[in-house]
């Protein structure tokens, strides 16, 4: 049996890695991957608290987070493709205008 706080610390570490990747990376696809990493860190703490409280509601929340993450990935990658067509670059520093 593992103490609950170990899971929370692991979740915090994953979230911090996601935040750091979002701030230091310049490739727009890697930024999206960092967002997915943050969502995974949050999901882990949801499941850990669900196991501690003996409640299944946390599992349902994780299900909805996954659905939203899948929708976000689909739309976000479509936007990346549209941006790449016009800019010919994946560097976020070159994407500084909202106009395509």
């Amino acid at each position: 049996m593992v103490p609950l706080s170990y899971y929370l610390v692991l979740s915090a570490i994953l979230f911090a890695c996601g935040v750091a990747g979002f701030l230091i990376k310049r490739n727009i696809i890697t930024l999206f991957l960092s967002i997915e990493l943050m969502l995974n860190g949050v999901n882990l703490s949801f499941i850990a608290f669900a196991a501690q409280l003996k409640s299944l509601d946390g599992h349902i929340f994780v299900f909805f987070v996954m659905v939203v993450a899948a929708a976000e990935a689909a739309v976000g990658l479509a936007i990346i493709i549209a941006v790449f067509r016009t800019r010919e670059s994946l560097n976020v520093d070159r994407v500084n205008l909202l106009k395509l």
Binding site: M1, V2, P3, L4, S5, Y7, L8, A48, A51, Q52
Partner: peptide
């Protein structure tokens, strides 16, 4: 925070 809340004594899984 989890130590102050006493969560590190709860074993789960």
């Amino acid at each position: 925070v989890s130590h102050l809340a006493g969560l590190d004594k709860i074993a789960i899984g």
